[in-house]
Design a binder for these strands. Structure first.
Lengths: 196, 196
DNA sequence: GTCTATATCCCGATAGAC
DNA sequence: GTCTATCGGGATATAGAC
C-alpha cells in the first residue's frame, strides 16, 4: 500500500484503519498507531484532537470504502438473485472479519454516537440496497411475493456478519462459506426465472 | 443473582463473566473485575494464575450455560421447523449481543487456542444440533431433500450472530427481529407438513 | 485466604523545544 | 509539523504482612 510514501496524516489514518480492523478500538493504543505509522506523539496531536478524533477519520474512510465495494457488486450484471449471490460470494478476507461490523462489538464505539454513526449508516445502507434488489426480483417474478425486501436484506447481511463469527470461532473460512451456501439454497429460484 | 452471597472465587468468576460480555477480554481489566467482585488483588491471584486463567474459567461457564439454553429450546416440542423457529425467536438480550460470539472479535481470545476452544466448541455444537433437526425435517418431508443440514445450521446460527451486529449498529433490536423473520420466511414450509 | 504495598510498564494527553 | 520530555493514572503482576 506504499504507506511510507503518504503524508503523515494519511499514514496515521491508514495505520489506524488497519489496527482497528485487527484489534478494535479498545485494543488499539495511540502508541501502537504511531509505531505503525512511523510518527511521533506530536504529529498525531497536531493533526487530530486525540484518539477518538483519529478513529473517527479512520472509521469514516473504512465505511465509505466498504459501501463502494458492496455497491460495485450489487450494481453489477445479472438477475436480482445473481447479484445477491455475487455479494454473498465476493472475495473476502474471512478470518479478518468485517472492518465495519466488528466495531459493533466495541463498547467504546457503541457508547459514542459519533463513532457509531458511520457504522450504522453503512450497515443500514447495504441492507436497504439488498432490499431494493429483492423487491426488483419480486416484480420480475424471481422471488415469491410473500418475501419482504427489508427482512431478506437483514437476513442476507446477518448471514455475512454472522458468518465471520462462525469462521473466526473455528479458525477456518469453511463455516462462512457453508452459511452462504445454506442461505442461497433457501433463496434460490427453483426454476430459473420462476417464483421459487 | 445474589453475587454477594457467593464465595470469593465464585464472585470473581461471575464478575468476569459479566464484564467479558459487556466489554470483551481486551476491555476488561483485573482491577475492574476486583472492584465488581468486591475483592482485593491477593484473592484473585490466590485462586487464579492471572487474567487469562480467570477468563478461561468464566468463558467455560458461559459457554456451557449457552449450550444448555440452546438445547432446552432445540429439544423442545414441535416439528423441526417449529423448534428452529423457537430457537430463533427465543428471548434474548439482543443489544447486549451473544456472550460467546462476541469473543470471536477479541484479538487476544482468537490468538489463544485455550481461550478460543470453548467458543469454538459451543458454536460448532449448536450448529450441528440445528443440522440434525434439519435432517430430521427432511426425513419427515417438511424440508426439501436438496437442503444440506450443516449448511442450513450455519445459516441459522449466522443469522443470529449477525443479527446482533445489525441490532447493535442501529441501537435497536428491530434489525435482529427482521433478519430472523426474513430467514424464517425462506425456511417455512409453504403448507404445514409439506416439503415447501 | 485476604489484604496492602510496591514494581514495571503502558495509556492517553500536554508542553514546549526545534 | 515534528520531535522529546513529562504527566497522572491504569494494567498486570509480585511480595509479604496478617
Amino acid at each position: 500500500m506504499y504507506i511510507e510514501r503518504m503524508s503523515t496524516s494519511e499514514r496515521l489514518i491508514e495505520s489506524t484503519r488497519e489496527l482497528l480492523w485487527e484489534r478494535g478500538y479498545v485494543g488499539t493504543s495511540p502508541k501502537a498507531i504511531l509505531e505503525h505509522a512511523g510518527a511521533g506523539q506530536g504529529s498525531m496531536y497536531h493533526h487530530f484532537k486525540g484518539k477518538p478524533d483519529l478513529a473517527l477519520a479512520a472509521i469514516r474512510r473504512t465505511a465509505e470504502e466498504l459501501r463502494a465495494t458492496a455497491e460495485r457488486v450489487l450494481a453489477g450484471p445479472g438477475t436480482p438473485y445473481e447479484r445477491i449471490e455475487a455479494y454473498l460470494r465476493r472475495e473476502r478476507d474471512v478470518l479478518r472479519g468485517c472492518p465495519v461490523g466488528r466495531l459493533t462489538m466495541d463498547p467504546d464505539v457503541i457508547a459514542s454516537d459519533e463513532l457509531r454513526a458511520p457504522v450504522d449508516e453503512t450497515i443500514a445502507w447495504i441492507r436497504h440496497r439488498i432490499a431494493e434488489i429483492v423487491e426488483e426480483g419480486k416484480r420480475q417474478g424471481q422471488f415469491a411475493p410473500s418475501l419482504d425486501g427489508e427482512e431478506i436484506g437483514a437476513a442476507v447481511l446477518a448471514t455475512v456478519q454472522g458468518g465471520y463469527v462462525l469462521a473466526r470461532a473455528s479458525g477456518s473460512p469453511a463455516a462462512f462459506d457453508a452459511g452462504v451456501r445454506g442461505l442461497l439454497s433457501l433463496l434460490a429460484p427453483s426454476t430459473p426465472g420462476q417464483r421459487r
